[in-house]
Structure formats: C-alpha cells, structure tokens
Amino acid sequence: MITILFIFLLICSFLCLYRISKGPSPGDRVVGIDILGIIVVNFCTIITYLTKVDFYMNIALSWALLSFIGTLAVSKFLEGKGFDE
C-alpha cells in the first residue's frame, strides 16, 4: 500500500516538474514550485509513518514555511514592487 502511495506522489512531482518546465508565463512556474513544496511535506509525512521518528516533521514544517515565504517574495516581485515597499 505504501508503495502505491509513493508512486502517486512521484507522479505528482513529475506533473509539477512538467508545469515548471513548460509554463507559458512566470506565474505558472511559481504555481508548480508552490505545489511541489507541499508534495515534499507529504513525503516527509510518509517517512515519519514508516520510521516512527519524529524529527522528520521538523523538516516538513521548515519546508512549508520557506516555501510560503518564497512564494510571497516572487508574487511581490511579479506585482511590480520592490522587496522593501
């Protein structure tokens, strides 16, 4: 069962990579990167489920946080403002 789940998540990652490489506008690429960040959280969760070791959840939290900040920064850049205003 866990193997099926891994295969699903791998397909998800490759679909996101397709969108990142193909996307016509910069916004499309950023959507792909944002979704890929949340897929990584899924991977960390499954590894926590398999190994019963709790510090993989720390990695998941940090990854979600940094992905959120990166998306905000790129969207502010697309909006046409500087980072400081």
Partner: peptide, 24 residues
C-alpha cells in the same frame, strides 16, 4: 507536530494562492 503542520498548511496555502493570483 503533525497537528501543528496541518494547521500551518491550512492557513498558509490559501494565502499563497491569493497573493499569487493578485500578483498575476
């Protein structure tokens, strides 16, 4: 920790979508 992570994702993912669509 998973509970905290779920709350964090429920708050931040719609916000990131809103910021990105507004910027587009």
């Amino acid at each position: 920790k998973g509970f905290l992570c779920a709350i964090f994702i429920l708050i931040t993912a719609p916000t990131a979508a809103h910021a990105l669509s507004r910027a587009s």
